[in-house]
């Protein structure tokens, strides 16, 4: 984990940020500090406001109210200077399909005025983590989805930005490619770049130093993934049954049950008070031996999200 204490100055500072589109409140008073060297994850479903927040940070959209600064530069007034130290990979990235891998890199190097003296060295560094060098003469249109994504990331990194912002880079990508992509983001962070990344996959929280859970234009929790999980206030059990569906109804009707959710082949049951062994014995009887086994578990980020979501709606 990188330094992210109270005594470090934030590299991104957001205060009371608001944005509306017509009658829709996209951002409803966001306060957030991101510190140098962090990987910060913005986690939430579609429509939570992740992309709006990212677009404002990238100077592509003006806020209605509030203040946003990147490295003490204001997103409204210092657009040109921000773009020099910011790398941005949008959800739908644009590469030139008819250019080769290396031509795309050179094109973006021109755009961002990377001096010719260091350009080749930079491209080599980017090949090192993208492993795209063997394909450098291949036209971009002939690359696989995963390779295109790595090339888009390399283009966003060509000017060695101090801050890298990525909007849902892993959406619709298979689990193995997703894991590789996170590995690259960790390498980028090791190189000193601060990373802000959004994702709809709750399990990716663990790849980040800190996360912000976003829902309906608000940040409902900001903390380390571990402390987010510890916020779950109820004893939680994973319960396997003969018939998960029937078992869910059984638990829903118990007084000491706070919530029951399907979770894959089992149920996640949160209790208002910790169950004791005699409780389980009793439930075994009253459910007609529906329960196969149970085990206390640590809440996942998704459990916390569900809980906070319900508190906010």
């Amino acid at each position: 984990m990188m330094a992210s204490g109270e005594n470090t100055l934030p590299i991104i500072e957001i205060q009371q940020l608001k944005k509306r589109f017509g009658t829709i409140t996209a951002l409803d008073g966001i306060d957030l500090h991101i510190y140098p060297g962090e990987i910060f994850g913005l986690i939430g479903p579609d429509g939570a406001g992740k992309t709006t927040l990212i677009r404002i940070l990238c100077t592509l959209l003006l806020p209605d109210a509030g203040r946003v600064q990147l490295l003490q530069h204001d997103v409204v007034h210092d657009v040109q200077s921000i773009r020099r130290f910011l790398g941005y990979m949008p959800q739908r990235f644009s590469l030139y399909p008819d250019l080769t891998v290396e031509q795309n890199l050179n094109f973006f190097a021109d755009l961002f005025q990377v001096p010719p003296s260091i350009r080749q060295q930079r491209i080599q560094q980017l090949y090192h983590f993208s492993r795209l060098e063997p394909f450098k003469n291949r036209p971009t249109r002939a690359l696989s989805g995963g390779m295109k994504q790595k090339l888009a990331l390399s283009c966003a990194m060509i000017h060695t930005p101090k801050i890298l912002i990525l909007d849902e880079p892993t959406t619709g990508v298979d689990p193995l490619s997703r894991q590789e992509f996170w590995h690259i983001l960790h390498q980028i962070r090791e190189g000193g770049t601060t990373v802000l990344v959004s994702t709809p996959y709750m399990e990716e929280a663990d790849q980040c130093d800190r996360v912000g859970l976003m829902y309906r234009g608000k940040l409902i929790v900001v903390d380390t993934p571990q402390r987010v999980r510890q916020r779950f206030p109820y004893p939680l059990y994973r319960v396997w049954g003969q018939d998960t569906y029937a078992l869910r109804e059984f638990f829903q009707n118990l007084e000491t049950v706070h919530s029951v959710h399907l979770f894959g082949d089992a149920l996640h049951v949160a209790f208002t008070q910790p169950p004791v062994p005699s409780d389980w014995k009793h439930w075994q009887l009253t459910s007609h031996q529906q329960i196969i086994r149970w085990q206390p578990i640590e809440a996942s980020v998704e459990d916390v999200f569900l809980e906070m979501m319900e508190a906010h709606s």
């Binding site: 939430g44 479903p45 579609d46 939570a48 959406t171 619709g172 709809p200 709750m202 829902y215 998960t244 569906y245 869910r248 959710h261 399907l262 979770f263 998704e302 999200f305 569900l306 979501m309 319900e310």
Partner: peptide, 24 residues
């Protein structure tokens, strides 16, 4: 085909509840 991309976790759970009852 990837029926739950982007929906929130509660909507996803509810959706799978429906799918399970359809299968039943």
């Amino acid at each position: 085909d990837e029926p739950t991309s982007g929906v929130d976790p509660r909507a996803r759970r509810d959706f799978w509840g429906l799918i399970q009852s359809l299968a039943r």
